[in-house]
């Protein structure tokens, strides 16, 4: 389980996060939803210790992040985390070199799944394909938790569909996933848990299926209630 406890973050005088708390379980897809600029990306960065927090605590399976935690959790940011001049094969080689949890078979499978050519240079790829390579590099790690920042934004329709397919496949099964998005649209049926974020705070944390079952409300219904009142 990933536990985010009362985290606060300031940029200069501006408070971006004002005490955000939520949990994300293994085997579930947790979706952080909020408008652009409400601090969703900052939360993911904070979980990965890519930016310091001013207050609060983040625990991964009950422990604060250590260097070895990166064999257990990975982050797929919205931009590719490899050098543009590298070929896909070289990027895969780099990952294999540094991570003991790299799963070569899965990586090969993902290449096929996304119909990528491993001899292509990253800089020559379309936006959609770059996003797929980025996803491949993260998903081919045998980690328990995967964080993804806006995996669907700015990507063509067909790539979106292919990426959405990842979420219904064994590539995600049994892992804990946190994704951020500013539009829930096409993934409403994919997610287990919703964390609504607004103005640096968690305004609501709920289970999507429970909201439908107990209140007959869609995720968007709940959002509408929270935002419009």
């Amino acid at each position: 389980m990933i536990e985010v406890k009362e985290i606060e973050k300031k940029y200069g005088r501006k408070k971006i996060l004002k005490g955000v708390s939520f949990t994300a379980n293994k085997g579930e897809i947790t979706c952080l939803i909020g408008l652009n600029g409400v601090g969703k990306t900052t939360i993911l960065n904070a979980i990965m210790a890519l930016t310091p927090i001013n207050k609060g605590q983040i625990l991964i399976d009950g422990e604060p992040l250590k260097e070895k935690t990166f064999e257990k959790i990975t982050f797929i940011p919205d931009a590719i985390t490899m050098l543009p001049q590298m070929k896909i094969a070289e990027a895969m080689e780099f990952m294999k070199d540094f991570y003991t949890c790299w799963n070569q078979d899965r990586a090969t499978e993902l290449l096929g799944f996304f119909r990528l050519n491993k001899d292509d240079r990253i800089s020559s790829l379309s936006k959609g394909n770059t996003a797929k390579v980025n996803l491949l590099l993260g998903l081919a790690l045998d980690v328990d938790y995967v964080l993804m920042d806006e995996p669907f934004s700015g990507i063509d329709m067909f790539s979106r569909e292919e990426i959405a397919n990842v979420f219904t496949s064994h590539l995600i099964e049994n892992r804990g996933v946190i994704i951020t998005t500013h539009e829930i649209g096409d993934i409403e049926h994919l997610i287990d848990k919703v964390v609504l974020i607004d103005n640096g705070l968690v305004t609501k944390e709920f289970n999507a299926e429970e909201a439908r079952e107990n209140e007959g409300k869609s995720v968007i219904d709940v959002m509408r209630e929270v935002y419009i009142g």
Partner: peptide
């Protein structure tokens, strides 16, 4: 996979 839903 076919229904595009979460495995859970």
């Amino acid at each position: 996979n076919r229904m595009k839903i979460n495995p859970n």
